[in-house]
């Protein structure tokens, strides 16, 4: 095969360029932040001009957007959704709740640090982040992808034990299928 260093590099550049300009989001809103997505997508802010588009199923998607607080019950579904997605995949934590719990810091049912359970590539700060902030977060992700640094999925695979341990600590009755990725 003609797969020496330089040609591989060119292929990588093309791949990363295409990945950067075509980010499909899973249509799955976990918290109140999902309400910021319609204005982001529609004519006022129009995220489609950056190639950001919604996709209906996790199989086709690239980006998992955690929009807001994560209840333990939702975390279970989010983990399953994340594991069904195909590489390369990215996670964006959206809003203060995913960073340190936000206003749900003393809630009995909300996980407070998303990156203990899923590998987060980009955090968007705010409560709520307005569409401008969302788009700037996506552009940050695009920069990371172009530089080849958005490797959350790789981290997740390498440190799966650590993530699983954290997930099992929160999800008491662990009845999850294993996906053969």
């Amino acid at each position: 095969m003609i797969y020496d260093k330089s040609s591989g590099k060119i292929v990588d550049i093309i791949k990363n360029y295409a990945r950067k300009h075509s980010l499909w989001i899973v249509a799955y809103g976990t918290g109140c932040g999902a309400i910021e997505l319609p204005p982001t997508m529609t004519s006022r802010y129009d995220a489609e001009r950056f190639g950001i588009r919604g996709s209906a199923t996790p199989r086709q998607a690239d980006v998992l957007l955690i929009t807001g607080y994560l209840a333990v019950k939702t975390l279970k579904r989010v983990i399953r959704t994340y594991e069904q997605m195909q590489d390369p995949k990215y996670v964006i934590g959206f809003g203060s709740c995913t960073i340190n719990g936000g206003m749900y810091w003393d809630s009995y049912n909300t996980v407070k640090a998303l990156d203990r359970y899923l590998p987060v590539d980009v955090y968007i700060n705010g409560c709520m982040p307005r569409p401008e902030a969302v788009i700037s977060g996506f552009i940050e992700l695009q920069k990371l992808i172009e530089a080849g640094k958005a490797n959350g999925a790789k981290k997740y695979k390498e440190n799966l034990d650590w993530y699983r341990e954290n997930q099992r600590k929160v999800i008491k009755n662990w009845k999850m299928p294993d996906y053969n990725w």
Binding site: I14, K15, Y17, A18, R19, H21, S22, T42, S43, D46, E48, R49, F50, G51, R59, D62, Q84, Q86, D87, P88, Y179, N180, W181
Partner: peptide
């Protein structure tokens, strides 16, 4: 479609980029 909906719209090469990206994705299921 985007122009009719009063949006700016993606570049016309968007579909090609989507297809290249999809070809470069892993398919393990």
């Amino acid at each position: 479609t985007a122009r009719i909906q009063n949006r700016y719209g993606p570049p016309s090469s968007q579909n090609l980029l989507d297809i290249i990206k999809l070809y470069s994705k892993e398919t393990s299921i």
